[in-house]
C-alpha cells in the first residue's frame, strides 16, 4: 500500500446514485461534487447509448472520473464496471491519482441497481477494498408519479433506496408533490425523503446506508395498497429472536424468492444480546449484520421491514413466525 493510502479507510464506501431517466441524477451529482468536503471522491458515470453526454454535464473531469459507454450498467457492463473500479483502485495504490476516500457510481436511468451492488460483493478483488455504502435514488417531482405507474425499474429504484431525493419540486404543484411524497413513503418507509431544494449534507448523503447509522423504522401505513405489485410491510416481534433460526429462514427465503424481495431491513433484539443487531439486504444480497452501540429509541422490539414484489405479506409473516419457533419446537 502506498504512503498516501495508509490513512485511507480499510474499505472505500461506494454510493450508487440512481433514478429514472431525466430525474436529476447528474444535476445532483454535480451539486454534490461542488462541495469541497467531497473533493476526494472518485466517480464512475454509466451512460446508455453510443454517445455519452452526462459526463459533459459534470464540470469536474479528471483522472478520478471514469465513463462507461457500453450501455446499461446492470446488464451489459458489469465486467467493465468491475474493471473500472479495479483500475481506480490500482492507480490509487500506485499513487498515480490522488487517494480518493469514496466512490460514487451514477447509473443509467434504466439500471436495476442490484447487479451493481452484487458486483462489488462478488468480485474477488473489489470485495476486499470496497463496501456498498448506500443507494441514493432521485425522483422527479413533476414526472415521478407517472414513471412509478409505467416503469417497474422506477419502482425498484425507489424500493431499494437508502435515501430518496425529490428533485424539481420548484416546477411541480404542491398537491402533486404531496401525493408523490405519500406514495414514496408508503413504498419505502425505511428511506429518508429529502428535497433537492433544501440544503443537502453531501457527506451524510453519500455515507448513508448499510455502513452508516440506523434510521428508526417507521411502521408502513396500515393497509397501504400495493403499487404495481410492490408492497411494504413490517414484522414486529416482542420476544428476543433466535439468530440461528432467523439465518436459516432468511437464507431459505432469499434463495427461493430473492428476486421479488426488493429490500429487507431490520433491527433485531437477539436472545442473549443486549445491543441491537441491524440486518440489511437487497434481493439476494445481504450485508454483514452490524452491532449497534445502543437502541435508537425506547422501543426494544425486533422490527423487520420488507419491500416485496408480488408476494403476500401475510405469507411471509406466517413463515417468519413458524421458523422463529424452530428452536422452541425442538426443546418442547
Amino acid at each position: 500500500m502506498g504512503e498516501g493510502a495508509s490513512a485511507l479507510p480499510a474499505f472505500t464506501p461506494v454510493t450508487l446514485l440512481t433514478g429514472f431517466l431525466g430525474s436529476g441524477k447528474t444535476t445532483l451529482l454535480r451539486r454534490l461534487l461542488a462541495d469541497p468536503a467531497l473533493g476526494d471522491t472518485a466517480v464512475i458515470i454509466n451512460e446508455l447509448g453510443e454517445i455519452g453526454i452526462d459526463h459533459l454535464l459534470v464540470e469536474r473531469l479528471d483522472d478520478q472520473m471514469v465513463l462507461l459507454k457500453s450501455g446499461c450498467v446492470c446488464c451489459t457492463v458489469r465486467g467493465e464496471l468491475a474493471s473500472a473500479i479495479r483500475d481506480l483502485h490500482s492507480r490509487r495504490e500506485r499513487g498515480t491519482i490522488p487517494p480518493f476516500r469514496r466512490l460514487v457510481i451514477e447509473s443509467t436511468g434504466l439500471a436495476d441497481p442490484f447487479p451493481v451492488l452484487s458486483t462489488l460483493k462478488a468480485d474477488p478483488v473489489l470485495r476486499h477494498h470496497f463496501r456498498a455504502a448506500g443507494v441514493v435514488t432521485t425522483v422527479d417531482a413533476v414526472n415521478g408519479m407517472l414513471q412509478l405507474e409505467r416503469h417497474i425499474e422506477s419502482v425498484r429504484q425507489v424500493a431499494i433506496a437508502d435515501v430518496v431525493v425529490l428533485t424539481k419540486t420548484d416546477l411541480a404543484e404542491a398537491p402533486v408533490t404531496a401525493r408523490l411524497m405519500a406514495r414514496l413513503g408508503a413504498m419505502n418507509p425505511t428511506a429518508p425523503l429529502l428535497s433537492a431544494a433544501e440544503t443537502l449534507d453531501a457527506a451524510v448523503l453519500l455515507q448513508s446506508g448499510s455502513g452508516g447509522g440506523f434510521k428508526a423504522i417507521e411502521e408502513p401505513a396500515a393497509g397501504a395498497a400495493p403499487h404495481r405489485g410492490v408492497s411494504a410491510f413490517s414484522i414486529v416481534v416482542d420476544e428476543p429472536l433466535d439468530w440461528t433460526a432467523f439465518g436459516i429462514w432468511l437464507t431459505m427465503l432469499l434463495n427461493r424468492h430473492g428476486e421479488r424481495i426488493l429490500r429487507v431491513k431490520g433491527i433485531l433484539a437477539l436472545a442473549g444480546e443486549e445491543r441491537p443487531i441491524v440486518v440489511h439486504g437487497v434481493q439476494h444480497l445481504v450485508h454483514a449484520p452490524t452491532h449497534l452501540g445502543h437502541w435508537p429509541s425506547d422501543d426494544h422490539r425486533s422490527r423487520l421491514v420488507f419491500i416485496v414484489e408480488g408476494i403476500e405479506p401475510d405469507l411471509i409473516r406466517r413463515s417468519f413466525a413458524v421458523f422463529n419457533r424452530l428452536n422452541a419446537g425442538i426443546a418442547a
Partner: peptide, 13 residues
C-alpha cells in the same frame, strides 16, 4: 425448498 409453501409451514408447525 420454499419456506412460504403452506405444506412446509403446516408440517413444521
Amino acid at each position: 425448498c420454499d419456506p412460504l409453501a403452506l405444506e412446509v409451514l403446516t408440517r413444521l408447525d
